[in-house]
Simulated assay, not measured.
Amino acid sequence: MRDSATATKTTYIDLIRHGEPEGGVKFRGSLDDPLSNLGWSQMESAITSTDQWDVVVASPLKRCRAFAEHVASTNDLPCRIEPELREISFGEWEGKTADVIEKESGDLIRQFWADPLNNTPPGAEPLTRFQTRVISGWNRWLDNLEGKRVLMVCHGGTIRMILAEVLGIPLEKSFAGVAIPFACRSRIRIDQTEYGRFSAMVSHSPLINTPNPSMS
Rank of each mutant, 00 (worst) to 15 (best):
T10I: 11
T10N: 03
Y12P: 01
I13S: 02
I13H: 01
I13P: 00
D14R: 12
L15M: 04
I16G: 04
H18L: 14
H18P: 05
G19W: 06
G19I: 10
E22M: 13
E22C: 11
E22G: 03
E22L: 14
E22W: 04
G23S: 04
V25Y: 04
K26G: 00
R28F: 00
D32Y: 05
D32K: 01
P34Y: 10
L35Y: 09
L35R: 06
L35D: 02
S36V: 11
G39K: 08
W40L: 01
Q42S: 09
Q42A: 12
M43K: 04
A46H: 09
T48P: 03
T48R: 07
S49F: 12
T50C: 02
T50W: 03
V57A: 03
A58M: 01
A58Q: 05
S59E: 11
P60S: 08
L61H: 00
C64R: 01
C64L: 04
R65M: 04
F67R: 00
F67H: 03
E69V: 05
S73C: 04
S73E: 15
T74E: 14
T74G: 05
D76W: 05
L77Y: 06
C79T: 05
I81S: 07
E82L: 08
P83W: 05
P83Y: 07
E84M: 10
E84R: 13
L85A: 04
L85Q: 05
E87F: 02
S89C: 15
F90W: 09
F90Q: 07
W93G: 11
G95S: 07
G95D: 09
T97P: 03
T97M: 06
D99G: 10
V100H: 01
V100G: 00
V100R: 05
V100D: 11
I101H: 06
I101A: 08
I101V: 11
E102F: 02
K103E: 15
E104W: 12
E104Q: 15
E104N: 11
S105L: 01
S105Q: 14
G106H: 13
G106T: 08
D107C: 03
L108T: 10
L108D: 13
I109S: 07
I109D: 07
F112P: 04
W113N: 05
A114H: 12
A114Y: 10
D115L: 09
P116C: 14
P116F: 08
L117A: 13
L117N: 03
N118I: 09
P121I: 13
P121T: 08
P122H: 10
P122V: 13
A124R: 14
A124P: 10
P126Q: 11
P126A: 12
L127R: 12
R129E: 15
R129H: 15
F130K: 10
F130S: 09
Q131E: 14
Q131K: 14
Q131C: 12
Q131I: 03
T132N: 15
T132L: 14
R133N: 14
V134M: 05
V134N: 01
I135V: 15
I135H: 09
S136G: 10
G137W: 13
W138N: 06
W138K: 07
N139K: 15
R140A: 15
D143H: 11
D143N: 07
D143S: 13
N144C: 05
N144T: 13
L145G: 02
L145H: 09
K148H: 03
V150W: 01
V150R: 02
V150N: 00
L151W: 00
